[in-house]
Design a protein around this nucleic acid. Structure first.
Length: 306
DNA sequence: TAAGATAAGAGGGACAT
DNA sequence: ATGTCAGTCTTATCTTA
């Protein structure tokens, strides 16, 4: 699993980019722009022991949760528990009152700045969006990082939190190759596609991000599972996609429209007929787009369907 | 009812000025 | 920064099988 991360002080010595790609499997941390490998052994973020009983767990536990960018304070805040002391013993009534007061002031002091309030609000919005779209944690973490970065860009300052969160989320999906459309994300966050798209481009441009093109294959499996297409047809579709990639008719086209058209053809070839209308609804493209892609593919791959 | 044909319009990327 | 252009996608409407 690869994901984007960043370091504050140690920018890449080659190109000064602060964005890095972390690969958990190889343990490499590389620059997202020039590809220079900066570190081979990443910090272990998980607990470093196994515990079989509660006592073991308690005695070995000496760390908290790993730091997380999706928490507005990265999960590094001080927390006052009002009822128990550090050994778990109950406090007296007077002490409890004191701790409650301290906790209140801790929260107030923490959120005194506009920036913190903004970030807290944004992280709430983000977690809602992530929940609604069923996105994995890695996307949420990436989106949180992108959002933090956007606050430093002047042209993005006056954009609303929701739009920025939606756009950051879309960037994170693209980077992690998670098949979600701009349309879907915009609709879920109750914003127009246009607004979010504009914001997305500004982020991409200002953070100098190199975002890979969507791979139609991911949308093929996504649409197929939504619509309930057989494995046989899916395999047929993937095979067709590989054939069409070689014919150079894939680039420049909407990968979702292409995926939908390929599934349509595959369904016809395997006699598992699915209407263009249904595919268009699920894939959130128009029937016309499916039709033009389908005719193009039919012509180039010489399938003789239409 | 599904699919095909056609036209008008929107919006963005590439490029030039 | 602004304008132009080619190409893509969408919306709408009508026709055909």
């Amino acid at each position: 699993m690869q994901y984007l991360t960043h370091i504050d002080e140690n920018a890449c010595p080659e190109c000064s980019s602060e964005f890095l790609i972390t690969d958990n499997e190889t343990g490499e941390i590389a620059c997202s722009q020039c590809g220079l490998v900066l570190q081979i052994e990443p910090l272990e973020q998980r607990l470093e022991f196994r515990a079989f009983t509660f006592q073991e767990w308690n005695s070995r536990l000496r760390t908290g949760l790993p730091t997380s960018l999706k928490m507005y304070d990265k999960g590094l805040s001080t927390v006052f528990y009002p009822s128990r002391d550090v050994h778990g013993r109950f406090l007296s009534g007077r002490e409890q009152t004191k701790m409650r007061r301290l906790r209140r002031w801790q929260t107030r002091a923490h959120l005194h700045s506009t920036a913190s309030k903004n970030l807290l609000q944004a992280m709430i919005e983000l977690s809602l969006l992530v929940q609604k779209l069923h996105l994995p944690v890695v996307v949420e973490e990436n989106a949180a990082l992108i959002y933090r970065k956007t606050r430093q860009i002047q042209v993005l300052r006056k954009r609303s939190i929701q739009v920025l969160v939606a756009a950051s989320c879309y960037v994170a999906c693209r980077i992690t190759q998670t098949p979600r459309t701009l349309k879907e994300i915009a609709a879920t966050s109750f914003r127009s596609r246009k607004e979010v798209a504009r914001c997305y481009r500004l982020i991409r441009r200002n953070l100098f991000l190199k975002i890979p093109n969507d791979d139609p294959i991911r949308f093929i499996s996504q649409i197929a599972s939504k619509i309930g297409i057989s494995q046989r047809t899916q395999h047929c579709a993937i095979d067709l996609l590989q054939q069409s990639s070689q014919k150079h008719i894939v680039s420049g086209k909407n990968p979702i429209g292409l995926a939908a058209a390929i599934l349509y053809i595959a369904a016809r070839l395997t006699a598992e007929n699915i209407s263009q209308k249904r595919l268009a609804q699920i894939a959130m493209v128009t029937e016309v787009t499916i039709r033009t892609r389908y005719q193009e593919l039919d012509r180039v791959l010489k399938l003789g369907l239409s």
